[in-house]
Amino acid sequence: MRALRLALSGLVKWLLVAMLIAMTVVLFAQIVFRYFFEMPLVWSEEMALVLMLWITFLGAALLLESKEHISIDFLVYMMPESPRQVIEIVGAVLMLILNIALTYGSYLVVEATVNSITPGMKISVGWHYGGAMVGGALLTLVSIEQLFASFSRPARAGV
């Protein structure tokens, strides 16, 4: 299971790198075409938006996996181990609920917008919201893993 998680994490990292490079190239091309050739690219803004949305939600899953999201936990670290573990479990449950709601809500939006077509790229608007759905699914998987981990290990020592 760990090997699968590491492989999926590595794949997401490479996808994020590729998307960031693609977004940079597209925006640079838009600047060049607009100001030097006076022929703006009609699809570039849409593509940059789609890439930014996907980067945001896929990156959120990677940050959750490595526990690099911003948190204010100094009071938790001042508590004894037993309450600290309870708070960690409650936090993991709440995070799981939030991520399930995100995934389900974004699925409903993708389903509602799948037949709408963007004017510039001529693709489904569902691609815009697909990043939230896929990222939400990855966030849910990471939340489940962290919830099980919080049950199976003793509370962390204070920092």
Rank of each mutant, 00 (worst) to 15 (best):
S71P: 00
A155G: 07
S150C: 03
A7M: 08
E145C: 00
Y77T: 06
V93G: 04
R34P: 03
A101Q: 06
A112R: 15
L16F: 03
I97N: 05
P40L: 08
H128L: 15
V90D: 09
V50Y: 14
L75A: 13
T103L: 14
L4V: 14
L98A: 13
Q146G: 01
F57R: 02
G126M: 12
T113I: 04
M121V: 12
H69A: 02
H69Q: 05
M39Y: 09
A3L: 11
S124V: 11
A149Q: 14
L96I: 09
T56C: 08
R84P: 06
A149M: 11
M19H: 05
G158W: 13
I70P: 00
P83T: 10
G158K: 15
I123S: 01
V50A: 08
L64H: 07
L63N: 05
R153M: 12
S71G: 10
M121T: 10
V76A: 11
I89Y: 12
I89L: 11
A3N: 11
P40S: 04
M95D: 03
I31T: 06
Y107G: 10
A92L: 07
V110I: 09
Q30L: 08
W127F: 14
L49Q: 13
A61H: 08
L20A: 15
K67M: 04
L139D: 09
M95T: 15
V90S: 04
A132H: 01
Y107S: 11
M133N: 02
V90A: 13
S106L: 14
A92V: 05
V159F: 10
A29K: 01
V142K: 02
L49T: 15
V125S: 06
E65R: 12
M133Q: 09
V110L: 04
R84S: 05
V32I: 15
D73R: 03
L96H: 09
G130F: 08
W43S: 04
E68F: 03
G105W: 09
I21C: 13
R156S: 12
I144C: 05
L108F: 03
S66Q: 12
S150P: 03
I97A: 13
T113Y: 06
M39P: 00
V17M: 06
L138C: 09
M47S: 06
I117Y: 11
M23I: 02
Y129H: 15
L8A: 13
S44T: 10
R34V: 03
L27S: 10
E111C: 01
L141F: 13
V42W: 08
F151M: 03
L141E: 07
G59R: 01
A48Y: 04
V26F: 03
I55N: 08
M133S: 06
G131F: 00
M52P: 00
G91V: 02
R153W: 05
T113C: 03
F151K: 02
E45F: 11
S116L: 15
P80W: 13
P154D: 15
G158E: 14
E68Q: 15
W54I: 02
M1F: 13
D73M: 01
V159M: 10
L16C: 13
M133T: 06
L64S: 14
S152N: 14
A61N: 01
A29R: 06
Y77K: 11
S44R: 02
L147N: 06
W43K: 00
Y129D: 08
Y77N: 13
P154I: 07
V125H: 14
I144Y: 01
M78R: 15
M19W: 08
L51V: 05
H128G: 07
K67N: 09
A112N: 08
A155Q: 04
R2T: 12
L41F: 07
G130N: 03
T118F: 08
